[in-house]
Each structure stands twice: as C-alpha cells, then as structure tokens.
Design a binder for these strands. Structure first.
Lengths: 196, 196
DNA sequence: TCTTGACTTGACCGGTCGGTCAACTATAAC
DNA sequence: GTTATAGTTGACCGACCGGTCAAGTCAAGA
C-alpha cells in the first residue's frame, strides 16, 4: 500500500482529532507502521506534511460531502439544508467513534497556525475561498430563479461560511453535535444587502 | 509586583498570539522574568495556568469591551453594532502590534483543546454561555420594546455568538480585520423563529 | 532573637521533540 | 549479472519539553 498516502491518512486523523502541535512525528510513524527515516523520505519537514494533509483533505471535501451538498440538481436553497445535515451527521458519527467532536480540520488549523505560518495560512484561505464560491454560486442561482430576493451574494456567501465555521466551533466547545441542528436553520436567514 | 498576575498576563498574551501547545513554560518564565521554581509555586501544572488564564481573560472581557458594548443605556440593537466595532478595532490594533490577527482567545483554545481536556472545555463553554446570555438579554429587550419581531431569543443569541466567532475565524485565516467590517452587518440579520 | 512560612533560585530529571544519516533491501532496466 | 534508484531501517543528535527539588532569601509575628 502507498506509504505516502498512509502517512497522510494517519496524520489527517490525528491532526483533526487533536491538534497540529500536539501530534508528534513519532506517533504518526508508529500508527502508520513505518520508521522515521521513511517519513523523511516523503516529507522534508512536519510543516510539509501538514501542507499535504490540507491539500488531501480539501480534495476529500470537494469530492465528498461538499460535492453532494452543492449538487446542482437540488433546488439551490435546499442544498444549504443538505449541507447542515451532512455536517451534523458527520460530526455525530465522529463523536461516536472518538468520543469528541473533531470540528472542522480547516477551522482548527486556521486558528492554531494562522499567526505562525503565512504559507499554511494562505493554503487555508484558498480552501475557504473555494467553499465561499460554492455558496456564492448557490445564492446566484437562487436569486436568478427568484427563489430569494436580490442581495450581495459575494458577501453573503462569505458570511454563510463564517456562520458555518462558527456553529461548528460552538458545537465542538460543548461537544454536542445537536448544536448544529439547533442553529442550522439560521444559516439561510443570513443576508447582506447590496451596496450596504 | 504581583508575580502570579505577571505570569498570567504573559501567558495570556503568548497563548492568544500563538497557541497553548506551542508556548512552553520556559518561555513564559523568561518573559515574566522569573525562574521555573517560582512558576510551580503558583501553578501546579501548565494546565492549571491555562485555566487561570481563561478565568482572568473572561473577567477582562466581561468588564471590558463586552460590558461597554452591552451597555444598557444604548438602544438594544445598537449594542450589537457597537460590539462589531469593538471587535474590529481590537483585532486591528492587535494586528498592528504583532503583525497578525490573534482572533478570539476562547475560540482559539476551544478548537485546540476541546477534544483533549473536558475540564478546560467546560470552562470555555461557561464563557460562551455568559456571552450568549448577553445576546439573549439584548434580544429580549429589543423584542419587548418592539424594535424587532418576536423570535426564539435563546437560539438566536446562540446563533449570533456562533456567527461572531466564525467571522473572527475567517478574518484570522485571511489575517484581515476588514473582514469583520465586511461581514459584521449580517449579524443583525440572523433569526431563528419560535417553535421552528 | 528566633521561628515560621511565603516566595525565589537554579541545577537537575527523564522523556520527547523535530530532524539526520549511513547502511541496507527490493525492484527493475540494461 | 551489474548497476541505478526508490524505499526502508533504526540508531543517533542536540534541543527542548513539563516538572522536581534542596537550598536559600526575606519579611512578619511572637
């Protein structure tokens, strides 16, 4: 089996469930059943690994539940309900497995390392930008088909992403996936008017 | 000068600008100009320190800009505008000082350690609960004085807090305090209806 | 003056950190 | 059968980690 990918998978899980600084390379190597030397054959530094993890997880995400949620066959505003559902079930499943809600890997890493590494930060903003675009397209479509009143789709999309991340943050802090359900319905109420 | 408080102040700043795991006790002692032994006279462990830091910062917060923002002499919904302003100027000032937006200490810690320490997590949820109550009182007052249509003030308050944290997260990820300005106006648009 | 106890010092501990390296193995090309 | 190269091994490095401790300082109370 592909060693490099195995390292990434192990690191992804550990970083997501704990934190970047808290997880050591030794532990990653042990769980991936390789030696340290092998690790440094594939990655020049720990920082390199987390970059690869972000990239990999962004792909998972884009082709996984984000792709399903933003399915263009669904009516636009229903996609947002679907997204909340997907986030809820995902976090709930993860909690049942590990005992704790892991939250959003990108959000976690963003808060942990944004002040310390601008390259990693830029990588994360690129992921957020991608997510924002999904929201924006959905909103544009909803406006075009007169499902919702016109608004500043760019800013509203950004605000929706922020709300999604914030909801997950609060849910993680109380280790309660139900928070996502309880607060999810407000996502569609968020509006930023044009020229506001 | 009070050594214990000096340790807390140094730790508060370092934890806020970096992360819990990234800051070592040695560094805290150096910056506070004390020896390690002194540190362990006041705190039994690093974990004890961060507990004290959360407590201390929650006090700062409650008596500082939260107290100002939720000033009962202001019309209720204007308090929320004030809060956004305060958050914006605070983050902007911090960025000018350190080069990076530190974000919200509570949010940062929540995502870093929620999966690893349930006592710390509980401490943080208590802080969030307090903040939520402020929002709730404000909303109750706004509803009572017919400034806004009736809604589920409990849930909406929680949603507003989540949005605030999410906004700060996204702003920190792009290291751009202007994000708070750009997205701030949506805070008041958040609504969760009763019996929804 | 003697004692007490809060506070401070700085050397020290075992363990772990991220990272290096020379040697080895397995595979495939020629 | 030789060579090149990708991948792997495990010992090793210095630095740093959180935490301990015996020895000392110093001010207040008796």
């Amino acid at each position: 089996m592909d060693t490099r990918q195995r390292i990434i998978n192990v690191a992804k899980s550990l970083f997501h469930n704990r934190s970047y600084a808290d997880v050591g390379i030794k532990e990653i190597c042990d769980k991936a059943e390789i030696q340290k030397g092998s690790f440094y054959h594939f990655f020049s530094a720990k920082r390199d690994l987390v970059l690869a993890v972000i990239e990999d997880f962004a792909q998972d995400w884009a082709h996984g539940f984000v792709h399903e949620a933003f399915d263009s066959r669904l009516p636009p505003m229903e996609r947002i309900d679907y997204l909340i559902d997907a986030a809820y079930f995902w976090q709930k499943a993860a909690k049942n497995l590990e005992g704790h809600m892991p939250g959003c890997l990108f959000g976690n890493l963003a808060l942990e390392i944004s002040t310390q590494d601008d390259v990693l930060r830029a990588k994360l903003t690129a992921v957020f930008l991608m997510a924002k675009e999904r929201f924006k397209c959905t909103l544009d479509e909803a406006v075009a088909s007169k499902k919702i009143a016109p608004l500043d789709t760019e800013r509203t999309a950004e605000a929706m992403l922020a709300y999604l991340e914030g909801m997950i943050l609060i849910a993680k802090a109380s280790n309660d996936p139900e928070t996502i359900y309880r607060l999810g319905s407000a996502l569609k109420s968020i509006r930023i008017e044009r020229n506001a």
